[in-house]
């Protein structure tokens, strides 16, 4: 990883000093063990503060949405998929961002992760990403084998922990709505209490809103201060979208998102009576 961070720093410095970008978005050392923190570097000499280590967990693609300056961003596999998504959805213009791709620095990695190296980049930092395994969705499949009552109890228990701080939503690069449905108040769809009903409606609706766009980066779950198991919902949607519509989000540009389109022959398992008229 030494070589990797040296390349990142050199390239970042070059981009800043030659005026190709105004800011570099990356990570610097954090204040807690095992945590690196997102940083915005504007001076070439500050590039030595950049780090690329186990603590670099946040999905940085998020920051490009608010960045008005021409930016370089240092990204790993999952961030790059989010970025592809944002480009696909016209939330970013490609010529405003210089992408410095680097192999995922997490040695253990996240369960089920298949894409550790960036799928889109202008410069690729050398270095080998850790091994990836085939995602067999065994967590989703194991959960689905529980009885409906057990599944409901688990889900209610998880969601009852939620304090509605919206860290999950704000950490998610796919959640970029200017006004979220929970903030609508005419009509007020979702109550502001942390009553179970409101929490459930929030989390289910969010899982559906990001279905077909979620890249399973895990940012929502990592951001949650209460340890709510959010990923299981997203991964259920991931599996459905993959099986029904043969689609995986953020792998290539210019593919139509599955929920923006249709096929005349789409299955109709949701119909009363299972689809037969």
């Amino acid at each position: 990883m030494d070589k990797c961070i040296r390349e990142i720093r050199d390239k970042a410095q070059e981009l800043l000093e030659t005026g190709q970008v105004e800011v570099v978005i990356g990570f610097t050392a954090g204040t807690l063990p095992g945590k690196s923190t997102p940083c915005f570097i504007t001076r070439g000499e500050d590039c030595k503060l950049l780090v690329w280590d186990e603590g670099c967990k946040n999905n940085l693609a998020n920051y490009l949405l608010k960045e008005k300056r021409k930016a370089a961003i240092i990204i790993k596999g999952c961030d790059s998929r989010s970025l592809v998504n944002l480009l696909t959805e016209n939330q970013l213009s490609r010529d405003r961002v210089v992408i410095l791709g680097a192999p995922c620095p997490l040695t253990e990695g996240c369960e089920g992760c298949q894409i550790k190296s960036p799928v889109i980049y202008d410069y690729l930092v050398s270095g080998k990403a850790g091994k990836t395994g085939e995602d067999d969705f065994h967590d989703v499949k194991t959960f689905a084998r529980l009885s409906p009552q057990e599944r409901k109890e688990y889900f209610y228990k998880e969601v009852s922990k939620c304090i509605r701080c919206y860290a999950c939503r704000n950490a998610c690069p796919a959640c970029y709505c200017r006004e979220c449905f929970v903030e609508n108040n005419l009509p007020q769809w979702v109550g502001k209490s942390t009553q179970l009903a409101d929490n459930l409606i929030f989390h289910l609706t969010r899982a559906l809103h990001v279905a077909g766009r979620c890249v399973d980066c895990g940012a929502c779950q990592r951001a949650c201060p209460m340890g709510v198991d959010l990923r299981i919902l997203n991964r259920k949607m991931l599996l459905e979208v993959k099986e029904l519509y043969q689609f995986e989000a953020g792998l290539k540009e210019e593919q139509e998102l599955p929920l923006n389109t249709y096929d005349p022959g789409d299955p109709e398992p949701f119909l009363a009576g299972g689809g037969e008229a």
Partner: peptide, 23 residues
């Protein structure tokens, strides 16, 4: 095509509800 786009949405909603134990 409104109902055709809705069809995908309903498919996912229904499977998510079933997943969290709703009849």
């Amino acid at each position: 095509s409104g109902n055709l786009v809705a069809r995908r949405k309903f498919t996912l909603l229904k499977s998510l509800l079933e997943f969290v134990g709703i009849e």
